[in-house]
Amino acid sequence: MNPILRLEAIRHSYGEHFTLRIPELSILPGEIFAVVGPSGAGKSTLLRILNFLEKPQQGRVYFHERAYTASNLPIALRRRMVAVFQQPLLLNASVWRNVSYGLRVRGSRNGHEAIQQALDDVRLSHLARQPVDRLSGGEAQRVSLARALVLNPEVLFLDEPTANLDPSNVRIIEEIIRKANQARGTTVVLITHNIWQARRLAHRVALLFDGEIIETADVDAFFHRPQDPRTAAFLSGDLIY
């Protein structure tokens, strides 16, 4: 199976000492691929590079086996991927207008049913006309997720989507992610520092530590038979960083 996204010989430095170094990484179509690791490991940078939001200083990013950069990726291809960040970053408008944003920029005028469905999926139909400044943190993040899912993306990038949320909102969001993957075949790249979330959702998991991918494996092997001692130490909470 050809990867939907592939990184090749990536090197990207920022700050004084940090360099992201990824010789090779493939994301397969239809999988939920989780990247775990401590804060500051480079997870969010990796996501921005995969999503063509940031151009790596060295190396190539392939989408369907063709190399593109953040500046030459055709808009039609960009619109097949969407990211949800830790901060919901909603527009100062109603819930409905936020969810409809991606459809509006695509010139779609017949998205009413899709928006309603997305709001139903995140259980926020009753707040459709509400201004977003009246939402709780969990509700705001669910709006952000609905805004992405209404676009029916081929790839969904999630950067710590449930950080700082209560267990009830975490459960709802995880259900939505699972449903999008299973029902629509959406490929999901999930960035999380929560190894239990990765274990609950992912098909494959990678440990990113200090800018390097230490180990990538199927979820079962990753958690039960880690090959690298640093993975084992991270899973047991003994990795000092």
């Binding site: 921005r48 999503n51 939001l53 808009i75 960009r78 619109r79 991927m81 969407v82 990211a83 960040f85 901060q87 970053l89 527009l91 100062n92 944003y101 991606g102 920029v105 695509r106 805004r147 992405a148 676009l151 990038f157």
Partner: peptide
């Protein structure tokens, strides 16, 4: 306006021109 909003809008499929108008609206 939070600077990450631009990245979010691009990720949602907005063209540069659409990002500019959205920022002015915000």
């Amino acid at each position: 306006i939070p600077s990450d909003l631009i990245m979010q809008l691009r990720s949602l499929g907005a063209t540069r021109r659409q990002v500019v108008f959205t920022l002015l609206y915000e």
